[in-house]
Write a protein that binds this DNA or RNA. Sequence first.
RNA 1: GUGGCUGUAGCUCAGUUGGUUAGAGCGCCGGAUUGUGAUUCCGGAGGUCGGGGGUUCAAGACCCCUCAGCCACCCCA
Length: 441
Amino acid sequence: MSKPQHIEPRTLKGFRDYPPEVMIPRERLMETARRVYRSYGYAPIDTPALEYLEILTGKGSDETDKQLYRFKDHGGRDVGLRFDLTVPLARFAAQYAQQLGLPFKRYHIAPVWRGENTQRGRYREFVQCDFDTVGVTGVASDIEMVLVIHDLLLAVGFERFTIRVNHRGVLNGLLETLGLSDRSTEVLRALDKLTKMGADKVRAELASTAGASDEQAGKLLEFAAVTGSADEVLTAIAPLVAGSERGEASVGRLREVLAGVGAAGASLDRVRIDPSIARGLDYYTGLVLETTLDDLPEIGSVASGGRYDDLAGLYTKQALPGIGASLGVDRLLAAMEELGLVGDSKTPADALVVYFAEDRLGDYLKLAASLRAAGVGAELYPEAKKVGAQLKYADKKGFRLAVIAGPDEFERGECQIKVLATGESVTVSLAEAPAAAQRLL
RNA sequence: GUGGCUGUAGCUCAGUUGGUUAGAGCGCCGGAUUGUGAUUCCGGAGGUCGGGGGUUCAAGACCCCUCAGCCACCCCA
């Protein structure tokens, strides 16, 4: 007897399978995001995973080009997998600007691919969860971005978090006064690493890659180190950008954003102005923002974004300014797990209907249906088996309730509802079962 | 893409300077208990020692390559 040759089941480096206990909280998080986005009027879109290579490489950065999954399709076309959702949005907006009308608000939750090296929390396939408003420059959309993130994190169950905002114009204003405007990309990249690497290393990088003098580097670090309440920070940085029209205007803009967030009723304790937030991406031109969890700062930013002047300049003459942000799905889920905000249930249903009187299948089906009609997710065990074995199954899968009825109960028109966690059980009439189950959940 | 660490049962890990049939806990399956789980007791299954090559009388252990994971750089979600 020869053994059958099996292909080894395995997944590619940087790609993941999601079993039920992982997928259940994942879907819940994305549903929450969807709900909040929709509540602000953002509409869903989707775009193809595969794009013409020229659409994706147009952005030009060497890094993203290196990370791009690219190949020739069966028709010999050069194609690539999208590496973010912003480029597809730019293409989409340019392609349909006339039909869409402005402003255009969309959210997009979908996987993207990057062929880069893996690390904890960094994969080659991961989901991005973006929302953007295209076609407007007003401060209201700046404020809204902060509010969406604020509402979203609260809706997910986080209480202690800090949304750190800054304005590229403030940074650029400072660079103007320092005479470093032409090195802004290098300077911003270095400053972005401040919390991670510390002042000394940033100072060294400022000198080496941006060519900053000791004095210039000192001013930059002094600026980035300003802390305190929003008012204190604004007051402290205003003189540093004095003389730069753009810098002064940007400080004013930040003031307006803070005022708006407060007016909307969001907690200003959760919003800080942080001059060290730069964001590595060089297409940001206005408000930039990062969000950290107060209890897990080491996990990094869980939501970040900013304002850009020109989203789709590569694809159309029409100027499309906008603002948007992205949720770090994997980081948020890691944090939720860490903070005990997710259970480890392997089933999305609330109740298991135990099936052991083989000739009463119809009664069981009816019972399960009545529970579902009341909004109680109910799984009927698929074959008649010992009660003990089925309760064991219910426990293992993480059902919260077991509904038990045999010939005796059906005879009396009753059933037992058992709370698995406590072992308590109540006996109710079949008609009352759905309401009783709702109460016990 | 560069550098470092790691890989033994489903999971977490033991395994002496290379030396007989590679172990434990948890989990899993079955039974005690054919109408009550998670606690108890008894029994059982399960390992190409990540994969390939080499050194050796002998390799889980040593060497090379490869795959995967983790960490740092880079960049970013």
